[in-house]
């Protein structure tokens, strides 16, 4: 039981280190880095490698943005398996919708509640 927490910490941390190296060494902006990581997550899922990583690291693999690419691809492939090529289009948001919809909802709620502070 404890081990899943350790692997979540380590794997999640390592994915962030990859992001930090893209920031510092490759000199990418945050937006470029996140896009690249999402694409990496998607490709890993296409190769069937991301699900085992989730099995291994739990939240360490589902919390980093790479899982966003993974779940989009996963949804698309699951539908494609059932309905063929057209499923690629229809299945896309089947799995990921929770992330996007909660970001939209909470983002909108936040705009009622908060205003930018601008302090250090």
């Amino acid at each position: 039981m404890i081990s899943i927490f350790i692997t979540a910490f380590v794997v999640g941390g390592l994915i962030c280190v990859v992001g930090q190296l893209l920031f510092d060494v490759a000199k990418l902006t945050p937006a470029h880095t996140l896009c690249l990581l999402v694409v990496i997550g998607s490709v890993l899922d296409g190769l069937g490698l991301y699900e085992p990583l989730i099995d291994f690291a739990g939240a360490g693999a589902t919390i980093p943005i790479t899982s966003f690419g993974n779940s989009l691809t996963h949804g698309a492939m699951a539908e494609a398996e059932k309905h063929g090529l057209i499923g690629v289009l229809t299945g896309m948001f089947e799995v990921t919708s929770s992330g996007i919809s909660s970001a939209i909802i909470f983002g909108f709620i936040a705009s009622f509640l908060f205003k930018p502070k601008g302090t250090i």
Binding site: S3, T7, E51, P52, L53, D55, F56
Partner: peptide
């Protein structure tokens, strides 16, 4: 076991 979790399925 921890490292066998990769092969859960």
């Amino acid at each position: 076991k921890t490292f066998s979790r990769f092969h859960k399925t």
